[in-house]
Computed example of a mutant assay.
Amino acid sequence: MARLFGLLLLIAGVLYPFAVYYGLEHWSPRVFAALLGGLWLARALTARRRPGGLWLAVAALVFCLLLGVANEPALLRWYPVLLNLMLLALFGLSLKFGPPLVERMARLREPELPDVAVRYTRTVTKVWALFFLGNTVLLMALAMWAPLSWWTLYTGFISYGLIGLLFAGEWLIRQQVRKHE
C-alpha cells in the first residue's frame, strides 16, 4: 500500500504544474490542498519508518494545511520549492550525518564499495545537493516573479530535463571512473 501512495505522490508531483496551470480556473487552492494532503497523510500512515521520512511528510502536510487555510492561488507555486528543499535537505544532511545518500544507494547493489567509490559517491551527493539548491533558488524566483506559463514550463518540463541530464552525465562519468579503477 505504501508503494501505491508513493507512486501516486510521484505522479501527482509530475502532473502538478499542469494541474495548477489548467486547474486554477476550475478549482480553488483548497482542492489542491485536500488532494495533496490526503496523499501525503496516506503515505505517512503506510510508509516504512525511515530516517527523515516522517518529517518530510509533516512538512508537506503543514504546507497543505497552510494552502487550505489561506486558499491563496499564489501559494500553489511554492509546492515544487518545498519538494526541492526536502531533496536538498535529504542529500545535504546525508553528507553531514552520513553515509551520503548516493553511497547508500550504491551499497544496495554493491555492499563492499572500494574507497575510490566511497569518495566518488560523496562527490555525486554534493553535486545533487548543489543542483537542488540552485533549482530551489530558481523555483523561488519563478514563484515570486514569473508568469504562470513560465513557471509551468520550468516546473513541468525544463527541471525534469535538467534532472535527466544530470543522471545521464553522472552515469557517463561513472563508466569512465569504473574503467580506470
Rank of each mutant, 00 (worst) to 15 (best):
S28I: 01
T125F: 03
M140L: 14
A59T: 12
Q175M: 15
W171F: 15
P51M: 11
A33F: 09
Y120H: 07
W40G: 03
A33L: 00
F91D: 03
K126C: 10
W151G: 06
R104N: 00
L162G: 01
L4K: 14
A70Q: 08
A57D: 15
P80H: 02
L24G: 14
T152H: 12
F63G: 08
D115Y: 01
A59P: 15
L133A: 05
E112T: 15
S159A: 10
R107W: 01
L7Y: 08
V81K: 02
V14S: 01
L7D: 07
W145T: 10
L56T: 12
G23E: 04
S149Y: 13
L142Q: 08
K179V: 09
T121D: 05
R178H: 13
E170S: 14
Y21H: 02
P51G: 06
R119N: 10
A59L: 13
A141S: 08
L9Y: 00
W145F: 09
L39S: 03
R107T: 14
L35F: 09
L61Q: 06
L54C: 09
L172H: 01
L142T: 04
M105Q: 12
G37F: 02
R77H: 08
L153D: 12
H180N: 14
A146K: 11
G134F: 04
G156A: 02
L4D: 07
L83D: 05
K179S: 06
L7H: 13
T155G: 09
L138Y: 10
W40T: 01
V177Y: 00
L82G: 03
M144T: 09
A143N: 07
W27V: 02
K96W: 14
S149E: 14
